[in-house]
Design a protein around this nucleic acid. Structure first.
Lengths: 145, 145
DNA sequence: CCTGAAAACACATGTCA
DNA sequence: TGACATGTGTTTTCAGG
């Protein structure tokens, strides 16, 4: 019944606070059966966690940008992610194939903050940066189911 | 007491299933006071929703890529986001400043699926695509607090 | 923002197929 | 191993102040 687990994941991806009772109703399972399946999905790591999704603008994070970085010296060991981890403005870090070595997603209150973060990125990771600023976000993080 | 709301948002961003009782304990509020603040944050749209975060690999989504798109004919009306919305493989869509007009994040099971989605993107939105494939993801979607 | 009580829910245990 | 029933303790929810 792998189908049932998919259905449960879809429900929780859309509403992370859905009760086991409601999951049971939607899937035709009893409350405890639903709970058991969810617990297994959590233990297997399929469900990594739960979070509230917040409105960046309401939080005062008005500027979003993608920053592609390239090491100054490609012969050096590449530990950019470690070196950049301490910057909370970096929301995501992807290692990519292609010209840049990493692609970062950055969120800050103002353009001035972006400038400051870019300077920190260059200094911390010894990289050059190529920044693409986001004008608007038609949609983001749609559930993968 | 704007400080309290920030704290609540931080807690819920990290654990979207935290109970109002526990939020109260962490913030020094009673259960119902905590619940009331959360409800207001939801109504104001600061909290947009709750979701389980899933492991893409476990779901069989082994390929992630960023796709920059450019319209074939820049004189035409630009409704790419609308035209692409129906493709569930597109997780996020950002309107960006710079050479491409949009940046898409795409997730699919295999490279063959990526190829298929790129064809659909080009056909649906009448754009050219420039794809950057993700090799690994050191970190992603860190809480903005 | 708190109290308090009723309803809903979570969750451990035990049973059955 | 997976589904279910039941019982106990929490949590949610909605009065009221």
């Amino acid at each position: 019944m792998e189908k049932l687990d998919r259905r449960i994941l879809e429900l929780l991806a859309r509403d992370g606070r859905m009760s086991y009772t409601d999951i049971g109703k939607e899937t035709g399972l009893s409350t405890s059966a639903a709970q058991q399946r969810v617990r297994r999905l959590e233990q297997r790591g399929v469900i990594k966690g739960y979070r509230a999704t917040l409105d960046s603008n309401e939080l005062g994070l008005l500027v979003t940008a993608f920053v592609a970085i390239k090491p100054f010296d490609p012969s050096q060991p590449d530990d950019a992610p470690d070196r950049l981890q301490h910057l909370p403005e970096i929301i995501s870090c992807y290692s990519v194939a292609g010209d840049p070595s990493y692609l970062l997603k950055v969120q800050v209150p103002t353009m001035a903050d972006l400038e400051a973060v870019l300077a920190k990125i260059r200094a911390s990771a010894k990289v050059s940066t190529h920044t693409t600023t986001v004008l608007s976000t038609p949609y983001e993080d749609r559930p993968q189911l």
